[in-house]
């Protein structure tokens, strides 16, 4: 084979002469990724600054105690009157009840959605018959593209009426049982309630949690699974012993993303929650959430009411952030503990 050997640039020093031709593109690419990352932070910061700015009236004029009171009675003088946009005496703009409602409905949704999602994910990665795994995965992914308003309308027009009877019998069942009769009850007992909102939210966040969890489960090395099986593990024991320890943090991260969606979901919840601002553990009663109340009222809002509604957005933003930071901290603590051997 007669090949012509390329001339070797051995003659000149390393620090002299032209740089590799890809170097310039490399620099451009680096700047592009840098800007993209920066843009996200910038947008986030701008959203935060402008919402805080627009809700400053609410935060400043009433003080933190008012902000975190449970009294929400958003009456203001109507347009065209002398004090347009000013609160009518007796009104209140406390966010606590709405924070409670947000956390409560999201908690119910997570409680319903997580076992279901992890179950579906395991089915599609390790448990189900091979020919059924992909079809199930596709169908679940498809659920994710249904617009939330469709779920909301379905909830209020189809689900709410018949499910009231179910709630009624559950409430009857728990009547008189201490503690539980405060939860599994309704006053008034309605189809549009915390439970219905939780159900709708669960259906909505199941696809995303399933999808992310499936990706996490797919990263568990076969060697780990075989390691457990070789010790005589049954399938469930293998899942508990090899799959979960390896994917715990990934699953928690998926759940956090689902939780973020549940807390921020607006229109579907606004339709099925029944719009009653209250701090009550009753699952079968109407309640309200931060995001839903904004959607329900923002159209006609003015003055201090508008400011307060935007402020609720800021509160939601901060709560979502806190929940994520807390989850991260819990995970890190567990990992550190294992590394330190305590």
């Amino acid at each position: 084979m007669a090949t012509i050997a390329p001339e070797r640039p051995r003659s000149r020093k390393l620090s002299e002469g032209p740089k590799p031709p890809g170097r310039e593109r490399d620099r451009v690419f680096r700047w592009f990724t840098f800007l993209a990352a920066l843009l996200v932070l910038l947008i986030l910061a701008l959203i935060f600054v402008s919402t805080v700015n627009q809700s400053w009236d609410w935060f400043s004029t009433r003080g933190l105690r008012a902000v975190f009171s449970s009294r929400w009675n958003q009456k203001v003088y109507p347009r065209g009157t002398a004090n347009a946009g000013q609160p009518i005496p007796g009104s209140g703009f406390g966010a606590w009840a709405l924070i409670f409602g947000t956390l409560y409905t999201s908690f119910v949704a997570i409680l319903l959605a997580v076992p279901l999602s992890v179950g579906i994910a395991l089915f599609t990665t390790d448990v189900g018959p091979r020919w059924l795994r992909n079809p199930v995965g596709y169908v679940v992914d498809l659920l994710a593209v249904v617009p939330s308003v469709v779920f909301g309308l379905w909830g209020v027009f189809v689900l709410a009426t018949p499910i009231r009877n179910v709630y009624q019998s559950v409430a009857d069942f728990f009547a008189g049982v201490p503690v539980l009769d405060k939860i599994f009850t309704g006053n008034p007992l309605l189809g549009t309630s915390v439970m219905t909102a939780g159900l709708i939210l669960a259906i909505m966040i199941t696809p995303i949690i399933t999808s992310l969890t499936r990706e996490v489960l797919a990263t568990v090395p076969i060697a780990q699974k075989e390691g457990a099986l070789a010790l005589g593990a049954t399938r469930w024991e293998m899942i508990r012993g090899a799959i979960f320890p390896h994917s715990r943090s990934g699953i928690v991260a998926s759940v956090m993303i689902g939780l973020g969606r549940a807390m921020g979901e607006t229109i579907a919840v606004a339709l099925v929650i029944g719009a009653a601002v209250r701090v009550s553990p009753a699952l079968f009663s109407p309640n309200n959430t931060l995001a839903a109340i904004i959607a329900q009222n923002f159209g006609e809002a003015q003055g201090i009411q508008r400011s307060a509604l935007i402020g609720l957005g800021v509160v939601l933003f901060v709560i979502t952030l806190l929940v994520n930071v807390m989850a991260r901290a819990v995970l890190n603590r567990g990992e550190r503990r294992l590394a330190a051997g305590k």
């Binding site: 060697a223 075989e226 390691g227 457990a228 070789a230 010790l231 005589g232 012993g241």
Partner: peptide
């Protein structure tokens, strides 16, 4: 699973959990 409880296996690459 019962088979594997009696007949254990050690793999090529160490695979501790």
């Amino acid at each position: 699973a019962e088979v594997r409880r009696r007949i254990g296996m050690v793999f090529q690459k160490p695979n501790p959990f």
